[in-house]
């Protein structure tokens, strides 16, 4: 205050630094815990509010069915958000994938496996397109993916309207073996295990986090940024394709609104789960899964409470603000890079 400099010994400086480190570690631990606390809070509050109905046998199957698509997509999205990317095309590309699969099935000329594989390639191509826009055309990923989303939505709308007046259905009973709780559980476990392994133990996940931490440092450290960014988008595309397959057989049809809104639900899941939207070393796949489950249980539970639709939206919004407000790290810049 009086302009005098305070002189400290090196030992004092070390002590101060230790205290600061301790505080920082405590803060990080608390911030890591908040999404879990949010999840537990949602589950406990809804269990009380629904009189235990939330965990009835019937409703557990509902929760699995309703969260399946979002968890699969969230696992894939972890690889993209970890390096600071995003993809707004996931909803439209999922709808297009479903259209391709249905068209092939109805043609009766293509084996089911080939139809499914082709369907998966649609979102892969779309996500890689987003990556290429960002990497080679130097278009900000936010703008590029938003533009591609509009293109894909237009294409989906056009092909659906021209070929089926907006709705193309398949026989639900013929494909019940796919829309089956056991099959879904197996696929879910397989995708989560594969995603976790790739994210934590291979270059695809590790390098993505390094790129998210600081792209320039990553490049100068010898990381092939383009390669790992594209791999991240490829994995997201595969996951969106798988989610699209199950979404299609669950609805037994595709319409020009199929998949719409998935991209925004995904962002909600990522943020609610405490996954850093700008990526980096704090990225954990479990946070994305946690976010997807929180959102799905919240939607399911609030409906079970028989609350007014406006109140449901209000509670969701409020909870979103509270959890993100408490868990998001303001010290390192913007929420979305």
């Amino acid at each position: 205050m009086d302009g005098k400099q305070v002189s400290r010994t090196s030992e004092e400086n070390v002590q101060i630094q230790k205290q600061l480190d301790k505080k920082a570690r405590q803060k990080e631990r608390i911030m890591n815990l908040i999404p879990y606390a949010g999840f537990v809070f949602v589950v406990v509050a809804l269990t009380i509010a629904t009189g235990g109905n939330l965990f009835s046998a019937n409703n557990l199957a509902n929760i699995l069915n309703q969260s399946f698509v979002m968890i699969i997509v969230a696992v894939g999205a972890s690889f993209v958000y970890a390096h600071g990317g995003m993809d707004f095309t996931v909803g439209a590309s999922m709808g297009l994938a479903e259209f391709v699969i249905v068209t092939m099935i109805l043609s009766d000329k293509v084996p089911l496996a080939a139809a499914l594989l082709t369907g998966v390639l649609v979102p892969v191509a779309s996500s890689v397109g987003v990556a290429c826009c960002a990497l080679y055309l130097k278009i900000p990923v936010f703008v590029g993916s938003l533009g591609l989303r509009m293109v894909l939505m237009g294409v989906l709308n056009m092909v659906m309207t021209n070929s089926a007046n907006g709705q193309l259905n398949i026989s639900y009973n013929d494909y019940r073996f796919i829309d089956n709780v056991a099959v879904k559980l197996l696929v879910l476990v397989a995708v989560i295990v594969a995603g976790y392994y790739l994210f934590e133990y291979t270059g695809i996940g590790k390098k993505a986090k390094i790129i998210g931490g600081n792209r320039t440092v990553a490049r100068e450290s010898g990381v092939n940024v383009s390669k790992y960014v594209i791999w991240g988008y490829v994995f997201l595309g595969v996951c969106v394709g798988i989610a699209g397959i199950f979404s299609l057989f669950r609805a037994a049809g595709v319409s020009n609104t199929s998949g719409s809104g998935t991209e925004f639900n995904l962002m909600t899941c990522i943020a609610l789960g405490g996954f850093p939207l700008k990526g980096g070393q704090r990225s954990r796949i479990i946070n994305a899964i946690l976010g997807a489950m929180t959102v799905c249980i919240l939607s399911n539970g609030l409906l079970l409470c028989n609350l007014d639709a406006n109140i449901i939206n209000g509670i969701k919004g409020l909870l979103f603000i509270v959890i993100v407000g408490l868990s998001y790290d303001r010290s390192s810049g913007k929420l979305v890079s």
Partner: peptide, 8 residues
């Protein structure tokens, strides 16, 4: 509008 949400 989506069938998925209606089913849920």
């Amino acid at each position: 509008n989506t069938t998925e949400n209606t089913i849920a």
